[in-house]
Simulated scan of single mutants.
Amino acid sequence: METMFASLTSSGITVSSFLICSLVALLCGALIAFTYTRRTRFTQSLVLAVILLPFAVQTVIMLVNGNVGTGVAVAGAFGLVRFRSAPGNAKDISVIFVAMAVGLACGSGYIALSVLFTVIACAVLYLLVFFHIGADRSGEKELSITIPESLDYTEVFDDIFKEYTTHAELTEVKTASLGSLYKLHYRVHLADDRNEKEFLDALRCRNGNLEVRCGQPHTPVEQL
C-alpha cells in the first residue's frame, strides 16, 4: 500500500513518467471542473483554467526538480502575472487552489496521492453545494413598492404586512417622476412563502397597481 504513494519521479524524470503525470493532471483537472459545474454558476474561462492549471503547475514543478534557486525564480515570474479579468469569488479561488495542489502532487510524482486528493476534494465540494452548506436560509426578502404621492406611506400597508409577514422594516424611501411617486424599500419575512402571490396582489390593489418587486436581498459581490 505504501508503494502506491511513492513518487514516480524519485529516480529522475523520463518521458514515460512525464506523460503519465501529465495525463493524470489533466484528468484530475477535468474531474474538478466537472464537479464544479454541477449545481453552481460557472464561466467557460474558469472551467478551462481549472482543467489546464494542474498540468501547467505539474510541468513547472518538474522543471524546478528540487532546485531552490529555480523555484524562487519561477515564483517571482508567477508573481508578475496579473489577471485582467474580473476578480473571482471565494469559491472560484478555492477551486483554483485545489487544482494547483493537484498539479503540485503530480509534478512531484505522487500520482496515487493526487488522484485520492482529487476524489476527496470533489466529493466534499459536491456535498457542500448539494446540501447548500453556508447558504442564506433566513427567508428574508427585499420588497420594493411604488406608490402615488397622495398615499401616506407610514401606515398604508401595515394591515397587509401584519397578515402576510412576520417582520417588515422600511429601509429606504425616495421620490421619483419629479416627486409624483414614492419608492419604498422594505426588508420582510413572509409568514408562508406559498402566499407570496396573494401578498403581492394585495399590495398592488393598495398602491393603484403600480410597480411592486419582491426578491432576494441584495448582497455585495464576494471577492478575495
Rank of each mutant, 00 (worst) to 15 (best):
E2R: 08
E2H: 14
S7C: 02
T9W: 00
S10L: 08
G12V: 03
V15Y: 07
C21N: 14
A25V: 12
L26E: 04
L27W: 02
L27R: 04
I32M: 08
A33E: 02
F34M: 06
R41N: 13
F42Q: 01
T43P: 02
L53P: 01
A56L: 11
T59P: 00
T59A: 04
T59L: 07
T59D: 07
V64A: 04
G66W: 02
N67S: 07
G71N: 03
R82V: 08
R82A: 04
R84N: 06
S85G: 15
N89W: 04
K91I: 10
V95L: 11
M100S: 14
M100F: 10
A105D: 06
S108G: 10
S108F: 07
G109H: 01
I111L: 07
L113N: 08
S114I: 11
V115N: 00
V115D: 00
F117W: 01
V119E: 06
C122I: 03
V124W: 04
L127V: 15
F131M: 11
F131I: 13
R137Q: 09
S138I: 11
E140C: 09
K141V: 05
L143P: 02
S144I: 14
T146K: 05
E149A: 14
E155R: 13
E155D: 13
E155A: 10
V156C: 13
I160S: 05
E163V: 13
T165G: 00
T166C: 11
A168T: 01
L170G: 08
T171I: 15
T175D: 10
T175C: 08
L178Q: 09
H185W: 12
V188A: 02
D193G: 08
E198H: 08
F199D: 04
L200R: 10
A202F: 03
R204E: 13
C205W: 11
N207V: 06
N207I: 06
G208A: 08
G215C: 05
P220G: 04
L224D: 09
